[in-house]
């Protein structure tokens, strides 16, 4: 720590802002990559990388705003989202023994165009939160726009995918978007809230894993369109 504090350019808020924006941009790129990527395993790994970058953003915010409790959130993100959840999901993929291809409803090129459109929507929305007069502590609206785009694209992926497992993945990226929005708007929520969210994600993955397995057992497929038969 002391060593880091002696490096000059690391102290400059302008540098921090650029770093954060850069990482946020990568988060968005990875999100769009996930839309285009058809392999399930690759998707899971992209999600892991995205979560890792997210932890980086959280750590940077903690550093520049001197909010030590966000470090805990960053560490938790790495442990749970970047390591534990991808491992769990990959094991699930092995266990249910499915084709490792994602079959989207809308074809891939069109999906990417739609994702671009959603990013535009997100920028329009984020614009209204941008107050330049708020001073240098404001992270700028780029990060928020990225957060909203990640959220919207995640949501779109959920709609666009047939298999329950790929929908779980989409839900997790959606959650990443919410996390990013939360830390860049509030510079870290109370720790207890964040712990709660992490616990939530973990439980969601476990429950959805079981659900996926059961759907597979019952319907001999993971295609949630088959759940249509359940309606009254």
């Amino acid at each position: 720590m002391h060593l880091l504090q002696n490096i000059d350019f690391l102290q400059a808020p302008e540098f921090g802002e650029k770093m954060i924006t850069l990482m946020a941009a990568f988060v968005l790129v990875l999100q769009i990559a996930m839309v285009g990527q058809r392999s399930l395993i690759m998707n899971i790994r992209v999600f892991g990388t995205q979560s890792f970058l997210l932890a980086g953003i959280a750590a940077a915010i903690a550093w520049y705003n001197h909010a030590p409790h966000i470090y805990i959130a960053a560490v938790m993100t790495v442990l749970i989202k970047a390591i534990l959840v991808p491992i769990l999901l990959e094991r699930l993929v092995d266990r249910v023994d499915i084709r490792h291809e994602i079959e989207p409803i809308v074809n891939t090129p069109l999906s990417i165009v739609i994702s671009g459109g959603l990013t535009l929507v997100a920028y329009t929305v984020a614009e209204s939160f941008y107050h330049p007069e708020a001073g240098p502590a404001s992270l700028g609206h780029n990060t928020l726009a990225v957060a909203i785009s990640v959220f919207l694209i995640g949501f779109f992926m959920m709609i666009n995918r047939r298999k329950a497992l790929s929908q779980v993945l989409a839900l997790l990226t959606l959650e990443n978007g919410i996390f990013l929005a939360a830390i860049c708007l509030t510079y870290g929520m109370p720790l207890i809230v964040e712990l709660g969210i992490f616990f939530d994600v973990l439980v969601a993955v476990l429950v959805l894993g079981i659900l996926v397995y059961q759907i597979r057992e019952t319907f001999d497929s993971m295609d949630v369109s088959k759940l249509r038969r359940l309606r009254g």
Binding site: V121, T124, F155, F156, I159, V224, S225, L227, R231
Partner: peptide, 19 residues
């Protein structure tokens, strides 16, 4: 009865509300 349709309803409502 389609999960995708329900998700799409929520999604469209969300975007409409945001805008």
């Amino acid at each position: 009865g389609s999960i995708h349709a329900y998700l799409a309803y929520i999604f469209l409502a969300l975007i409409a509300l945001l805008l």
